[in-house]
Design a protein around this nucleic acid. Structure first.
Lengths: 329, 329
DNA sequence: CTGAAAGCGCTAACAT
DNA sequence: ATGTTAGCGCTTTCAG
């Protein structure tokens, strides 16, 4: 059924080694035999067996990816970009989902390592010494995205802190003086890796400081954030800006406010972060920070493939963002 | 570096075969040696080499998935469900994206077959005799989802036609007599496989017939459907229902109507299809058909794993849908 | 320029 | 119950 190099060798009256030389255009073979072998191979529709090649070469041409899940729009966009770029460079993509569970993430890593992937793109929920020493055991390149671990692992992300800081500048420039900040993941502070969320919060504080906002912001860290909003009142004379660490929260907030008959941005302003693609369907257009998510995916692949093929990481500078001025602030 | 069964064999003073017996708890080994081997293996943190195993067993424990892209929410949800179920059953998932291009899909298939995946879950854009004979060459199970090819390939989907038919019943029961149908993919009729879209359209016509709607519906097949809407006027006395073959179109339509100051459903009704998760953020709540997308993913994996392991397809009946009564009709 | 042989790590059939 | 042997399909020396 399956045609192997041996079959081709027999037919062409040469050895397997020669067929290999022809197929992978290595040196040390005459044009004539090479041409013949290639012809026969094509005619028989020869397809190389990647598993066999992997065994001997110790390379599988596949890159493992670990994400939380695909429910968040951004992750799907990210994976889309990753797959595209990877296939373009001749690599497969093995996708595994950690579901934000630290133990589950470890399973994913082991799973991929045993599958002999050539590298891993990791959006981790873990951190700490123990995790780092665990990760250090592996000799394949691991690249982290979004959540930073330490300088020992290549990291690709954006200047989150600066982005949020700038966002605050913009909000203040629109006349807001009162702030509410929503970021449920902060509840996991110390428990799991929420680097990006911490950075955004830091940027928020720095932004307030820079703009000399002295009224204390309300920080909501509960996943029941809508309920917490119910206890607040929104008045026009002291207009509040609800800053959400993610568009998804902002959308939920806007949905709730609309239902309550609170008008945006007349009575209250809402700011998001990410610029997910579904925003184009929602009114009012959410003011948000554009996160170059697909660029991150592409860079991650480029970087890891480069490391696999040439052994060195070309450090990637933090990527830039853009404030999207919508109608909600 | 890497610890192999040979290493373990040497240390335990047994042969590789025996180690294999212990590790994979096969018969013909004493409890005592087995226990010892397992201990040593654990201590040395032995990890089996899947590529080597694949080569000899001819199985890679990975399932290839081919989708259009991940920009559509549903696809991401689907893949999420697929990954979850697959890993649960001990399989990897290799994801490839065809970008809706027939040639690109062929590349994906070849790619996966050469990667020796054990089976393929295929959301195809291709169809026709030539494609079928191409597909027939492969001896791994291929399961089709959404777009049907022929009875030669296992198919998992829902009763789309019936769903749309029932949707029309519901719309008519709400007092609508005039219909506009939007489905841009229909422009590809005859060019690529748009089975689900055709089924939905058929259901639409059947629904009109069953409800004795005689006024001719407007069918919009252009991707510039918003522009086409601009030429239409919406009057309360002859209220029209805009039936969209996908929630995404419906969202765009609603967004456009809201901008035009047309109130939904007072002046015009809008119906979607899919019940994508972002609907919860959009007002008014879109009336739509709930498509059990994750169930399809799980069933696809179950079915293909069953086929791989036991050699037979357990036919899956078409799945059921549910009409979600929102506020837009 | 080409052939022969060894071996990647594991499994499976056959001996002992 | 355990050891031995022969591959899986390919790449890679080392001879010739």
């Amino acid at each position: 059924m399956k045609v192997t190099i041996k079959d081709i060798a027999t037919i062409c009256g040469v050895s397997a080694g020669t067929v290999d030389r022809a197929l992978n255009n290595r040196t040390g073979i005459s044009e004539k035999t090479k041409k013949k072998i290639l012809e026969v191979a094509k005619e028989m529709n020869y397809q190389p067996d990647y598993t066999a090649r992997s065994l001997v070469m110790g390379k599988t041409m596949t890159i493992g990816v670990i994400l939380f899940d695909l429910h968040n729009r951004s992750f799907a966009q990210l994976l889309n970009a990753i797959e595209l770029k990877a296939r373009q460079l001749g690599y497969f993509v093995n996708i595994t989902l950690s579901d934000k569970k630290p133990e589950s993430e470890i399973d994913c890593i082991n799973y991929l390592v045993n599958g002999k992937v050539d590298g891993i793109i990791l959006f981790t929920v873990n951190k700490g010494e123990q995790f780092e020493s665990y990760l250090s055991k592996f000799d394949i390149p691991i690249i982290t995205i979004f959540n930073y671990i330490s300088e020992k692992w290549e990291y690709i992300g954006i200047r989150e802190r600066q982005a949020m800081k700038d966002a605050i500048d913009y909000i203040v420039s629109q006349g807001y003086q009162k702030f509410i900040y929503i970021s449920p993941p902060l509840a996991y502070l110390g428990k799991s890796n929420i680097y990006t969320q911490e950075e955004r919060l830091n940027g928020f504080y720095e932004g307030l400081k820079r703009n000399r906002i002295h009224s204390k912001p309300v920080i909501i860290k509960s996943s029941e954030y809508i309920k917490e909003l119910e206890n607040l009142t929104f008045s026009k004379n002291e207009k509040a800006a609800i800053v959400c660490s993610t568009d998804l929260y902002a959308l939920k907030v806007m949905h709730y406010l609309k239902k309550q008959g609170v008008s945006i941005p007349e009575q209250v302003g809402v700011m998001g972060f990410d610029d997910i693609d579904i925003l184009e369907y929602v009114t009012p257009r959410l003011t948000t920070v554009k996160y170059p998510i697909e660029e991150i995916g592409r860079r991650a692949i480029e970087s890891i493939v480069n490391k696999i093929d040439h052994g060195d990481f070309v450090p990637t500078p933090l990527l830039d963002y853009e404030i999207i001025k919508g109608e909600s602030i």
